[in-house]
Simulated scan of single mutants.
Amino acid sequence: MHRFATEKSILQQLPHPDWDRRGIRVLVKRDDLIDPYVSGNKWRKLKYILQLARRQNQKGILTLGGAFSNHLLATAAACREAGLTSIALVRGDELTAESNQNLHACAELGMALHFLPRPEYDANGMQAQQAIWMQRHPHCLFVPEGGAMPEGLKGCQEIWDEIAEPVHHVFVAQGSTTTSCGLLTGAAASTTVHVVPVLKGFDSRAEMHSLLSSLLGDPSLVNSYLRQVAVHAGHHFGGYAKSTPELLDFIRDCRQRWDLPLDRIYTAKAFHALVDAVENSAEFDGATVLFLHTGGLFNG
């Protein structure tokens, strides 16, 4: 078994008297157990990206992300393991490698960090920056934020290969939409994919439509997939990387009740949405509900 073996990702069933009475099975796909750094969906997305870099004889990966980006940490660790260099464009020129434990760990793993002013990073500014940095590093494979490319999507689709029973509902935290789109395109037509955006004001459907359109190119197919999506937009707890006493209490309760560790940035918000939905809707009676644990506990 190699370091990032997905066989480490067990299915954990969560007992709950009310859920049991209603015939609801809640299963957690523990992708957080794959690796402390390259955890959760991160290895899923990076697996084929690293293979692509090798096929193209690239010397490293050039990517981008924010101060608490699990993608940056995973890329730094995976590239080090693979013998590739890693370079990151980081949102916020007020930051340094010592601003938080995430950026510090990235630097310790050998990732070169370049901090960009937010206007240059956001929207149209990044397009120009991307071209500049790709010129500077022609022997690096450019990987979009969150691994949003066909190889990342393919890796996330493979999660279903490890689920041996029908799943009626699957819940997942949403950032770049790559994981949620991979889950969606790999799911059975009868499965509802519940996405929980962790960014305040994030338009899940529009972002998923944009990514799927760019990768699939078939408008009717994209619209067909999106009909399987349910969006839970009210669980961001103030916005990205923000939390409240209620969320922190919820994290502690899940750890005590089920020995289920959750992080405050992604997974706790998504699992809170699952619990809220299951407890308040008869739609889930008699159903198997899967929660994809996307890791991120290092930034927990």
Rank of each mutant, 00 (worst) to 15 (best):
S243D: 09
L226M: 13
A268Q: 07
F237P: 02
Y225C: 00
H209R: 14
S220Q: 15
Q256K: 13
R264D: 06
C254S: 12
S224E: 13
D263M: 10
F237S: 04
A206M: 04
L216E: 07
A206N: 01
A206C: 01
L262H: 04
L248H: 12
L212S: 03
A233S: 15
P245E: 01
I265D: 02
Q256F: 02
R252V: 05
K242W: 06
D249N: 11
D253F: 05
D249L: 08
D263A: 08
D203M: 06
W258C: 06
A230M: 02
H232C: 06
L247N: 03
D263S: 07
H235T: 14
A233D: 15
G234E: 10
G239R: 15
H209C: 06
S204R: 02
A268M: 05
F237W: 04
A233E: 13
S224W: 08
L248V: 02
A268I: 08
L226N: 07
G238V: 13
M208P: 00
L262M: 07
S213Y: 03
E207S: 15
N223M: 11
P245T: 03
P261R: 06
D253E: 15
R205I: 12
V222I: 11
Y240T: 13
H232K: 11
D203S: 10
R255G: 09
I265T: 09
G239V: 14
P245V: 08
Y266T: 07
N223C: 09
T244L: 08
E207G: 01
D203G: 05
D218Y: 12
T267V: 03
A241R: 06
M208Y: 00
I251H: 07
G201V: 12
T244K: 09
S224H: 14
A230S: 09
D218M: 10
L260S: 09
D249T: 09
G217Q: 08
V222P: 06
S220W: 14
V229A: 01
D263E: 10
P245D: 02
R227V: 15
V231W: 00
D263G: 14
Y266G: 05
R227A: 15
G201M: 12
Q228A: 07
D253W: 09
L260P: 04
D259K: 14
F237I: 05
A241M: 10
S214L: 10
G238E: 08
D259P: 07
L262E: 04
F237M: 11
